[in-house]
């Protein structure tokens, strides 16, 4: 009973924050609502006894991905107004379609076909000393090795495409060359010029000429 109340509570928060991600006017707000959605999702996973996944979700998505996301949002300062132009006009149609689909899905799910109560028995199996993380560790590099490798391929591909689509080799950009930076010598940085010392004007403390600098920093 208690877990059910928890589940419905968190599910409600999840849904509301998911809607707010899309509808919030401020991009930073919507990014923060996404963080909230991830957190509540993690809680629901804990209720389903998938603690490892829940922790990974918080660590990876909230901790790493969303922080980067917020950085990008704050730096770019994207104006989303043009994107929302058709929003109000198309909203009634969208809501109608969503309601019809939701009603249909509800009708299907409420029939006997799903036997939700019967199937939820599976999740309730408990064993002492049973560790979720250990179970995943046992199968990830054995049973699911192939899937794991393909996931790695997806990441490589994403990296290659991201670089291809964003890297510009423009002539005008000023770029650093780390190789040159490392190889630089003292004499490249500073040039010593020999010159006669000048008599100093005692009243002002200035030298006679302006170009009497000892070194010329490049």
């Amino acid at each position: 009973m208690f877990t059910q109340i928890l589940f419905y509570g968190y599910a409600a928060i999840l849904l509301i924050s998911a809607i707010l991600v899309v509808s919030a006017r401020n991009t930073i707000h919507s990014a923060l609502f996404l963080v909230l959605a991830f957190f509540t999702c993690a809680v629901i996973w804990i209720l389903l006894r998938a603690e490892f996944l829940a922790i990974v979700l918080v660590l990876v998505y909230v901790g790493a991905v969303m922080v980067l996301f917020l950085f990008v949002v704050m730096m770019l300062n994207v104006n989303l107004e043009p994107l929302r132009e058709g929003f109000v006009r198309n909203l009634p149609v969208g809501i109608l379609v969503a309601l019809i689909v939701a009603a249909e899905m509800f009708l299907v799910l409420s029939t006997k076909g799903f036997k939700l109560a019967e199937q939820s028995e599976l999740a309730l199996v408990d064993a002492t000393g049973y560790s979720n993380t250990k179970a995943i560790g046992a199968v990830l590099y054995t049973d699911y090795l192939y899937a794991f490798e393909i996931a790695a391929v997806v990441l490589v591909l994403a990296m290659v495409t991201a670089i291809v689509l964003t890297m510009k080799k423009s002539v005008n950009t000023k770029r650093q060359n780390p190789g040159h930076q490392v190889r630089v010598k003292r004499k490249d940085r500073i040039r010593l010029i020999k010159m006669d010392s000048e008599p100093v004007n005692r009243k002002t403390g200035d030298t006679k000429s302006d170009d009497a600098e000892k070194g010329d920093v490049k």
Binding site: I150, L157, V164
Partner: peptide
């Protein structure tokens, strides 16, 4: 031979297709 693999393969293919369509920036 598994739905998981099928989905992953589909993702590898689709990702490359998106990138190829956008290739001419």
């Amino acid at each position: 031979a598994s739905m998981l693999i099928l989905y992953l393969g589909l993702e590898v293919m689709s990702l490359s297709l998106y990138a190829m369509v956008a290739f001419n920036r």
